[in-house]
């Protein structure tokens, strides 16, 4: 994790999943699927990216918790505590 905050980690992973997204202007509480037109493949890639960055495996049943930036940050903080 080095000096990255959880939020910057989530935004970096999002940027890798959807390179055309301007991550500086993402609404942290709006559903990424609605906001950025992400699909189920993108959400899976988010889960894989978050796992690779943090070691946290997000089960499918928890996907609804990682579809916003702030939700994903809270979820990771909880799982890493």
């Amino acid at each position: 994790m080095s000096d990255e905050t959880l939020e910057s980690t989530v935004l970096r992973v999002l940027g890798e999943v959807a390179p055309e997204v301007d991550t500086a202007n993402v609404d942290p509480v709006e559903d990424l699927r609605d906001q950025l037109d992400l699909d189920s493949m993108d959400i899976l890639n988010m889960a894989i990216g978050l796992f690779e960055a943090t070691g946290v495996e997000v089960p499918e049943s928890d996907y609804p918790r990682i579809v916003t930036i702030s939700g994903a940050v809270d979820y990771l903080a909880e799982r890493m505590a």
Partner: peptide, 17 residues
């Protein structure tokens, strides 16, 4: 599919599609 996916690493999950 859900049962299968819960038993494998995130990288090996299969989407319904």
């Amino acid at each position: 599919l859900a049962g299968r996916n819960s038993g494998v690493p995130v990288t090996a999950r299969v989407l319904p599609v």
